[in-house]
């Protein structure tokens, strides 16, 4: 298969035909932040954290395929600030109480805020009131922390392929619901996968929490994306 040549911030890179900008960047040891994207799931490009600029146009790098000669801007200061502002919006839009959250230290939203040095969001807090759903035997859905990435909707299915999670309503009212019957049939491993697939602490396994001590959690030591930059993702 012929190689595609393109650049990221001026650096020559190569890609395979059909690769998205995020995938190709990763193969070249360049990190582009993602949040609604999860490896193995079909990307939907809804959160826009991965926004890059090509020929003056903004595009979601998780859905956009690389083309020959493409010059991708990834770390321009205005792009990075726009990404930071998206992270800040997510923080004020939900109720994110990191000190009391089981996912703290393993949370992708928090890890992005750390990497982007978010000391305080620039927007006023909205304090929405969202209901918690703890009916499923192995799972808890804490909607106050949900960022509507739809990773659970796309990634968690029952044995017959039916979706366990669904998005109800649209826009600012969008809410995640659980199919209680299907959720009751989830094994412990599937419940664990649901918790892992959720980037934040909205999906939690019951009867366990704070299992990994502070200092040993995923993002305690090294910033999110540093594994990609070290080339570990190749």
């Amino acid at each position: 298969m012929s190689e595609i040549r393109f650049t990221i911030d001026g650096r020559p890179c190569v890609a395979r035909a059909g690769q998205t900008i995020v995938e190709a960047a990763k193969a070249n040891g360049v990190w582009i932040p993602v949040l609604c994207h999860y490896e193995g799931l079909k990307p939907v490009g809804s959160c826009r954290i991965c926004t890059v600029r090509v020929a003056g146009r903004y595009m979601a790098a998780c859905t956009q395929p690389v083309t020959e000669g493409m010059a991708v801007e990834n770390t321009a200061p205005d792009l990075e600030d726009m990404r930071k502002s998206l992270i800040e919006m997510l923080f004020v839009e939900g109720n994110h109480f990191c000190p009391s959250c089981e996912k703290s230290g393993n949370c992708e939203l928090q890890a992005l805020a750390y990497r982007y040095r978010m000391m305080v969001p620039r927007f006023p807090y909205l304090w929405p009131g969202r209901a918690l759903d703890a009916r499923a035997p192995r799972l808890m859905l804490e909607r106050n922390r949900c960022i509507q990435c739809l990773r659970c909707v796309r990634g968690i299915r029952a044995k017959d392929g039916r979706k366990v999670f669904a998005a109800v309503e649209r826009g600012p009212r969008v809410t995640i619901e659980i199919d209680q019957r299907l959720a009751a049939g989830l094994s412990d491993a599937e419940a664990r996968r649901a918790m892992d697939i959720c980037p934040v602490g909205a999906i939690l396994r019951k009867e366990t929490g704070f299992a990994v001590p502070i200092g040993k959690r995923k993002y305690d030591g090294a910033p999110i994306g540093s594994d990609v930059e070290k080339g570990a993702g190749r």
């Binding site: 109720n95 109480f97 000190p99 969001p121 807090y125």
Partner: peptide, 19 residues
């Protein structure tokens, strides 16, 4: 200087904010 989560974002006392 806002020192700590409660000064910065309300912190755990702000758990009451949606009630």
């Amino acid at each position: 200087v806002s020192l700590g989560e409660c000064a910065v974002m309300g912190g755990l006392p702000a758990l009451r904010n949606s009630i």
